[in-house]
Design a protein around this nucleic acid. Structure first.
Lengths: 371, 371
DNA sequence: TTGTAGGCGTTATCAC
DNA sequence: GTGATAACGCCTACAA
């Protein structure tokens, strides 16, 4: 009188083997084996198999345990996580939404995220929003449909309506780099203003009085903050800001920032009151600046000092090596993911905002101005 | 006499609301609504709701259809894909296993993959194997547990035992960049040998007779192939190869290749019979080569020609711009993903291998040798 | 220590 | 057109 239902199920299993396989090409219909199959082979119930194979602490006799483990190994049993997830409402995948993985800053962030995720047995879904708010929303929606419970986002839009709704439904969010004003979102920010200030102050301390700032469009708050820091430093010393903003729309072709740097530098060189130092909104732009200066026969740093922002790996490789402000990309990713997984595992977390601090990285692209 | 079971289920639903929420911190127990909830609100069965909300072609009266859609929208219904996936044994996520996302070559590949995935409504799980075969196996295992049916892999190990097993169970694999000898794996290769040949031939055609090759450890087949191409070209012209291989272990810190280039160049400069041209195994290494040459006061390309391999975005930004061999990274990612999604959607696909061709990119780091 | 049975949210197969 | 119902693979009270 044992297991009428289960027996039927198993009977069916035996016969449901490959009904339509060969006919339609490379499409094998291999029902993979389940705990029920193993149960049958071991002569126990599927409950016992589940208890053993899910590393439950539930007591199972040593004999059965050994037998089940052996059979699972012999048959190359692979558990179907979907079943588990559906039942337990857990999910070992996280998502990261970033502007573009080809931006070296974000690829370091993602490497850090993935590393911590791996340590905690999570995997990460990568989403490139390409600065498109609509795309971003679509991603958020589909990760939620997949029951992903943890999201790290460097958002392009400040609109948190959608996020808010999903947070209420159990999504945990860490916002990177871009502040999202919303309760329940853990903020990991970077003090861009201070970074901009630090950079400008370094140039001022080196003796410069005419310091220009070249930047990508000021649409992202982070960029506005760097600019504000630059302005604050200059004003504090009674100096007048010179700001060149790229007007072209952002493209992700890997040389956009570089070209910006070149273009804006050309403009600066035409100025009657030419600056003696140029601060760029990021390192890639700074590389463009240096490149254009070199093309114009202006020596760096003798005739013109240049500073970047970010400290990507490339900054060490330029000639001269670029003086810049370090924004801890890799560490930021690790931190964000650590907080996220902590939260997902139920550790109590106070509501807080983390503000990472900039650090001046002095290399060789800055010198005192010529007298 | 209608729906005794479902009624009970729904009754339970109403009362199972938030039993333990507040007590244990930030852990809301919000059962999200299901098709059953919507069915109840609309006064229809869950079957009808499913038919409407899953875009089935199954006929449903316009009135019901409209009502269900409206309610779903009003209540912000989000389908639980886990249920669907479990039932239908489909899965809209792919996985990409690559050595490291901080390598600009792979970040472009991944951008291409993700783009095509998005177009086909897939999402992609990113896995950095960090050249660790053990890690790679772990990834393969866990994506399979998640029922992922499509994998794009740039494998470090040539051991396909595990992959083979999963392919037999329905996993579809596209191998990028690194040949995996296994039936059923779609190969997208790049003709590294020809690339190496092309580069060396270009240097020879420019008049060079003493051409050195600097390279990361020759553990990956791709690297050995480039080297072979280089050797073939030289031998064809009766020239003797000079190969410098880095002996240090690979690290993913973003400057490893650069440092290699510098270190190996230093060795070359000490040679009694100094080369007049240096070919590097990739662009990052070539940047290191140029950097070291500049530090040593050797002018590029007047006194020494330099060539890279890959054509990453940065090669356009060096001074002088780097002559190199283009390996189509982004396009490779797109192609791989296109094939994968085609295969997953059941399109008939012949077994084949695709060999992408290298292309010479002439910039300014190569000149005729001094006489 | 073990097994039974029900349900996680969805789809698919039947009847009606 | 519609609804009941049985899966999908797993976990977990509850009973034994």
């Amino acid at each position: 009188m044992q297991g009428s239902k289960i027996d039927e199920r198993d009977k069916k299993r035996e016969f449901s083997f490959c009904q339509k396989s060969i006919a339609e090409g490379a499409c094998p219909v291999n029902k993979s084996l389940t705990i029920h199959d193993i149960a049958k082979m071991a002569g126990v119930s599927s409950a016992t198999v589940s208890r053993v194979l899910s590393n439950s602490t539930y007591p199972v006799s040593a004999a059965n345990r050994e037998k089940i483990v052996r059979i699972a190994k012999e048959t190359n049993y692979v558990p179907n996580l979907l079943g588990k997830q559906l039942k337990t409402n857990t999910n070992m995948t996280l998502a990261a939404i970033i502007p573009s993985i080809t931006n070296p800053f974000y690829s370091s962030v993602v490497l850090g995220i993935e590393e911590i995720a791996r340590e905690n047995r999570y995997q990460v879904l990568l989403c490139n929003s390409l600065q498109d708010a609509r795309l971003e929303d679509e991603y958020v929606k589909s990760i939620f449909e997949k029951q992903v419970k943890g999201l790290i986002i460097s958002s392009i839009s400040a609109d948190t309506k959608l996020l808010k709704r999903y947070i209420a439904k159990g999504l945990h969010v860490v916002a990177l780099d871009q502040k999202l004003e919303e309760d329940g979102i853990l903020q990991i920010e970077f003090d861009y203003r201070k970074g901009g200030y630090l950079a400008a102050a370094h140039l001022i301390a080196s003796g410069h009085r005419r310091i220009a700032y070249v930047t990508s469009p000021l649409d992202r708050p982070s960029r506005r903050s760097i600019c504000r820091g630059y302005e604050d430093a200059l004003r504090e010393h009674g100096l007048a800001p010179t700001i060149q903003v790229a007007e072209s729309e952002e493209i992700y072709d890997g040389v956009y920032e570089f070209d910006n740097g070149k273009r804006l530098t050309r403009r600066l060189l035409e100025l009657s009151d030419r600056p003696t130092a140029i601060l760029a909104c990021n390192d890639m732009t700074a590389v463009g600046v240096m490149n254009e200066l070199m093309a114009a026969g202006v020596q760096v740093p003798r005739e013109m000092s240049v500073m970047g922002f970010d400290d990507i790996a490339f900054s060490r490789m330029t000639v001269p090596p670029l003086t810049t402000v370090k924004q801890p990309d890799y560490e930021m990713g690790r931190l964000a993911c650590q907080f996220l997984t902590d939260r997902l595992s139920g550790k109590p977390m106070p509501q807080m905002e983390i503000m990472l601090q900039p650090k001046l990285v002095v290399r060789e692209s800055v010198a005192a101005p010529l007298v």
